[in-house]
Computed example of a mutant assay.
Amino acid sequence: MVNRLSPDDAMYYFLDGAGTTTHLGTLSILDPAQGDGATLDYPRLVALVENRLQQMPRYRQTVTEVSLGLARPLWIDDPDFDVTFHVRLSAIPQPGSDTQLQELIARVMSRPLDRRRPMWELYLIEGLTGGRLAILTKTHRCLLGDGSHPEISEVITD
């Protein structure tokens, strides 16, 4: 079965260009002191995301353009999918201030996504004041469709 980008998704895909991106982001700040005592670390987050990707096959697919632009691009399974390329560990110098976090977010969000891979990234950010952690997601708008495909932060937080 051929799975083409919808007209709206193709529009968002082609709107990306020099100085213009159509990815979306979410930021969750976690306070381990407020939880059940379980700690979140990079290996646990990778395992969680890998497990939840079963509910979101689109996040394992890349966009392939059709020769000569004669049709809308296709969703194709990425045979070399590596979850550790998409789930990344980052840190700000302790004690990480909100300003330092905002600067990191600005740098991450200003970079375009790699079109040769599934177009999403997730960052576990350590070093915030009070032992807090942050999870930053960056998802290309074409992955979300008409709302029928959840953003990755929706699937990992339950």
Rank of each mutant, 00 (worst) to 15 (best):
P95M: 01
P95D: 09
P95R: 10
G96V: 07
G96P: 10
G96N: 06
S97D: 13
S97Y: 04
S97W: 03
D98C: 05
T99K: 12
T99H: 11
Q100I: 00
Q100K: 12
Q100Y: 01
L101D: 10
L101G: 07
L101Y: 08
L101C: 03
Q102Y: 00
E103R: 13
E103N: 12
E103H: 12
E103Y: 04
L104T: 06
L104V: 05
L104Q: 02
L104K: 07
I105F: 08
I105R: 13
I105M: 15
A106G: 14
A106C: 03
A106D: 15
R107K: 13
R107L: 10
R107A: 12
V108H: 10
V108C: 10
M109G: 03
M109P: 00
M109R: 08
S110R: 13
R111C: 08
R111P: 00
R111N: 12
R111Y: 03
P112L: 06
P112D: 05
P112R: 12
L113P: 01
L113K: 07
D114G: 04
D114P: 01
D114K: 05
R115W: 02
R116Y: 02
R116Q: 14
R116F: 04
R117S: 06
R117F: 01
R117K: 14
R117C: 01
P118R: 10
M119W: 04
M119Y: 01
M119R: 08
M119S: 14
M119A: 15
M119H: 00
W120N: 06
W120Q: 03
W120E: 06
W120A: 04
E121T: 02
E121N: 10
L122R: 04
L122H: 09
L122I: 13
Y123S: 03
L124W: 10
L124I: 07
L124C: 06
L124Y: 06
I125V: 15
I125L: 07
E126A: 11
E126W: 00
G127E: 09
G127D: 08
G127Q: 05
G127C: 04
L128I: 05
T129Q: 15
G130L: 05
G130P: 02
G130R: 04
G130I: 06
G130Q: 02
G131T: 09
G131P: 04
G131M: 08
G131V: 11
G131S: 05
G131K: 07
R132Y: 02
R132V: 04
R132E: 03
